[in-house]
Nucleic acid binder design. Structure first.
Length: 303
DNA sequence: GACCAGGAGTTGA
DNA sequence: TCAACTCATGGT
């Protein structure tokens, strides 16, 4: 049993595993009974929440994945929540309502492919696409009497034809994924982990199929850039309706974000929330999805 | 049948 | 620099 979010002072904080897995940052997970199974690269990981505080972790392969790293328990969530949660009433409320939410530290390759697939579609369909890729190019694994297919390595996916990927349900994204595999194989992942935000973003933007938003997601969820502030349709609505005066003119949720506008708005939000803006973004994303704007409660929070 | 979904590339002004 | 268009596709 591994304690989740054990602070330096020994206090253990609850993590809501389902809330975290279901927050749109990761797609290949399954709930079976009380257990959660996560496809992490070429591994299947079983996560068992226990009173919201402890998990049991088993893996299908000997390769050890540190659950404390996976759930970013090395982040001081109290300090983070304190630093972002007092910026305004909305983020304060979101932090309060999604107290068990955490960011995860994903495998960069799986994260890259996942968010290229996540353009202009729903989370449900992203899962279908990724499952198709796993079934076609990953390894079949029997684990706990259940059958899983792991995520293929870059080299395993290198041989995929565009037709193969289309068949997996990727549609027009197939050629982007195909190109991205080659790009990734040419990249030095360590330098992406160590590099600064601007530098790494520009490298990622060089991959076909990766724009501002996808680059931000990859950096936030797998490359240690916690200041990344991805803006999807939900976050854009939140900004347009709640942070309009912070971001400034020209903010209209009915208008699509141009790349330049995206950069300006995202940069402003990074400045506003600071080095943990990515956590703020994740809280706001969950809040916006859970309490849709049909629910007027979001309007009643005064800054 | 239109519209939406954790968007991005291309084109033309 | 930006709006308009296109790219697949399942769900509502």
């Amino acid at each position: 049993m591994i304690p989740l979010a054990r602070r330096m002072d020994g206090i253990i904080d609850a993590i809501d595993v389902e809330q975290t897995l279901d927050s749109g940052q990761v797609f290949l997970w399954y709930k079976r009974g009380r257990s959660y199974y996560l496809i992490y690269s070429e591994n299947v990981i079983r996560i068992e929440p226990c009173h919201g505080q402890l998990v049991l972790v088993h893996e299908s392969k000997p390769m050890y994945i540190d659950v404390e790293r996976l759930f970013r328990l090395d982040d001081d969530i109290h300090a983070i929540n304190h630093s972002i949660g007092h910026k305004d009433a909305l983020i304060g409320e979101a932090v309060k309502r999604f107290k068990g939410l955490r960011l995860m530290r994903q495998d960069p390759f799986q994260c890259l492919i996942s968010f290229i697939c996540a353009t202009n579609t729903s989370i449900t369909r992203v899962r279908c696409m990724l499952e198709g890729i796993c079934k076609r190019f990953g390894n079949k694994v029997e684990f706990d009497g259940l059958t899983f297919h792991t995520f293929p390595s870059p080299k395993a996916l290198q041989d995929a034809s565009i037709n193969d990927l289309v068949w997996c349900g990727l549609g027009y994204r197939a050629r982007f994924v195909k190109q991205a595999v080659y790009s990734y194989l040419d990249m030095d992942v360590e330098s992406l982990l160590d590099g600064g935000y601007d530098e790494v973003r520009d490298i990622l933007l060089g991959i076909e199929g990766v724009g501002n938003k996808v680059a931000d997601c990859i950096m936030l969820f797998s490359l240690e850039k916690l200041e990344s502030f991805p803006i999807d349709v939900w976050i854009w609505r939140v900004i347009a309706r709640y942070y309009r005066d912070i971001v400034g003119m020209g903010v209209d949720e009915r208008v699509r974000l141009s790349p330049n506008m995206y950069r300006r708005v995202s940069s402003t939000m990074r400045g506003y929330f600071g080095r943990y803006a990515g956590y703020a973004q994740q809280y706001l994303y969950c809040y916006a999805r859970a309490y849709t704007f049909d629910n007027p409660s979001i309007y009643t929070i005064n800054r």
